[in-house]
């Protein structure tokens, strides 16, 4: 009997599409970078990059924009991963923000995110002269993301103009930029949250332990559970950290990322929980709640 090619299931098709996009970027840009945010989407993106260029290593560096407010377990995971895979990892922090002690409590999540994430990212892109930056955003995350191109053009100021994006047909991506301009590339645009989890399960991809339920110290604020990851979290009058079995559906800065109560401590249980979930994952990210259309506004300013 003749052996026939493997059937292209939806996950295989998504995987092949992402690999295709990464190879285009590696071939067409002078100085690309992959943004690595340590979360599950980044873990999948990194895994796909390893696959895309095998047996070569990914021909670009990885960059983490560190706000200094990440969970400690995330930083450990990041450093372990970089060492295990021999990655060229750049960590960038907005030093001006650090000098001014910009933090989410005194300045609010909007100002904090703007300075420590958006500005920091722009600084780093300019400093290194990157002409393409991979990001792990997905179109199913949020309404304004649903219209994002896979190759999203940014001006010299890193601005995004939703009305002035290039038409994107077939898999023919226009990668041409002038000096100073850049393209944000979203290779996992067409994946959904469920696809991500299934792929992690299928490929056995390592993820940060914070995704798994464990007894952790938390306080309840405005109906959301905030983990007391270090002593920098100012406790309000009457607040006493409690040990609860919690996990995170999305990861970011610990004071801005809410935990959910859960007993799910295996990948299978996480996926099961996901299947019955009644809130979308971004609900755990407080920056989206600040104002209507806030994601669109942040993106125009250069946020991922």
């Amino acid at each position: 009997m003749t052996i026939t090619p493997e059937r292209m299931t939806h996950l295989k098709r998504l995987e092949a599409e992402s690999i295709f996009i990464m190879r285009e970027v590696a071939a067409e840009f002078k100085n690309p970078v992959m943004l690595y945010s340590i979360g599950k989407d980044s873990s999948v993106m990194l895994h796909l990059a390893i696959k895309a260029f095998y047996p070569s290593k990914p021909p670009f560096p990885f960059m983490h924009v560190n706000t200094t407010w990440k969970f400690r377990e995330m930083i450990k995971f990041r450093d372990d991963t970089a060492a295990r895979l021999g990655l060229n990892l750049i960590s960038h922090t907005n030093q001006e923000g650090v000098a001014n002690n910009i933090n989410p409590f005194d300045h609010g999540s909007n100002v904090f995110t703007n300075i420590m994430k958006t500005d920091a990212l722009k600084q780093a892109l300019t400093e290194h002269g990157f002409d393409a930056a991979f990001g792990g955003a997905r179109r199913d995350e949020e309404k304004s993301r649903a219209k994002e191109r896979i190759f999203s053009f940014r001006t010299q100021n890193h601005g995004w103009d939703p009305k002035n994006q290039r038409p994107e047909l077939w898999n023919l991506y226009n990668a041409r930029v002038k000096p100073g301009e850049s393209i944000r590339v979203f290779p996992i645009s067409n994946w959904t949250e469920l696809d991500i989890w299934q792929y992690i399960l299928m490929e056995n991809i390592p993820i940060v332990p914070l995704y798994f339920a464990k007894k952790r110290p938390v306080v309840e604020r405005g109906g959301q559970l905030i983990m007391v990851d270090d002593e920098r979290l100012p406790l309000l009058p009457g607040e006493v950290p409690e040990m609860k079995s919690v996990r995170f559906r999305t990861l970011g800065d610990y004071p801005l990322t809410a935990a959910v109560e859960s007993e799910a401590d295996t990948l299978e249980e996480i996926v099961a929980e996901m299947l019955v979930a009644r809130t979308s994952e971004r609900a755990g990210r407080m920056i989206d709640h600040d104002e209507a259309g806030s994601m669109e506004k942040k993106k125009r300013e250069g946020y991922f």
Partner: peptide, 26 residues
């Protein structure tokens, strides 16, 4: 499904938006 603020206000869809759903078969 009408994503961007400008078009929400104008009441028209001006760009291609991608949506995802799944059933037991596909």
């Amino acid at each position: 499904v009408d994503g961007l603020q400008a078009e929400r206000e104008q009441g028209i869809t001006i760009d291609v938006a991608y949506r995802f759903f799944t059933t037991d078969k596909r």
